[in-house]
Simulated assay, not measured.
Amino acid sequence: MTLSLAAAFCWLVVANLRAMFPSKDHHWRFAYGMMGIGVPILMGVFVQNGLWVAMICLAMAAWIMRWPVVYLWRWIKGRFV
């Protein structure tokens, strides 16, 4: 297992553990931080393991951080429709 893949799995575990506890801002500050950390990790996964493994990691991250993805989709849809 490469270092970037191990970092991606650690990122997934930390995001899941943090999501279990309540937050006053509904985890948005944490989500911004995790997105900032997750992008370089995902690029490392792509470089070291290839496109398909990076796509699987991206899908797992989107599954955990689904509300930012939903709001991004709504924003894109609003811009083009």
Rank of each mutant, 00 (worst) to 15 (best):
T2V: 08
S4P: 05
L5T: 11
L5F: 14
L5K: 08
A6F: 03
A7F: 05
A7D: 07
A7P: 00
A7N: 05
A8N: 04
A8I: 03
A8R: 04
F9M: 11
C10H: 04
L12N: 08
V13S: 08
V14P: 00
V14M: 06
N16I: 13
L17E: 02
L17F: 03
L17C: 04
R18M: 08
A19Q: 12
A19H: 01
A19K: 01
A19S: 12
M20C: 10
F21D: 14
F21H: 12
S23D: 15
S23W: 02
S23R: 15
S23E: 14
K24P: 12
K24I: 09
D25F: 02
D25R: 07
D25I: 07
W28S: 06
R29H: 06
F30H: 05
Y32L: 14
Y32D: 05
Y32V: 10
G33Y: 02
G33A: 13
G33V: 10
M34N: 09
M34V: 11
M35W: 15
G36P: 05
I37V: 15
G38L: 13
G38H: 07
V39W: 14
L42T: 11
M43S: 05
M43Q: 13
G44K: 02
G44I: 04
V45Y: 14
V45S: 11
V45P: 12
V47N: 03
Q48L: 15
Q48M: 15
N49G: 13
G50Q: 07
L51Q: 13
L51R: 10
L51I: 14
W52N: 00
W52E: 02
A54I: 06
M55P: 01
M55K: 00
I56N: 04
I56E: 05
L58F: 14
L58C: 13
A59K: 01
A59G: 12
M60H: 06
A61I: 02
A61D: 03
A62N: 01
A62E: 02
A62F: 10
W63F: 06
M65V: 03
M65I: 03
M65F: 07
R66L: 05
R66A: 03
R66Y: 09
R66M: 01
W67S: 04
W67L: 03
P68H: 04
V69F: 08
V69P: 00
V70H: 14
Y71G: 05
Y71H: 07
L72S: 14
W73G: 03
W73T: 07
I76T: 10
K77P: 00
G78Y: 01
R79D: 00
R79L: 12
V81W: 02
V81M: 02
V81Q: 12
V81K: 06
V81G: 12
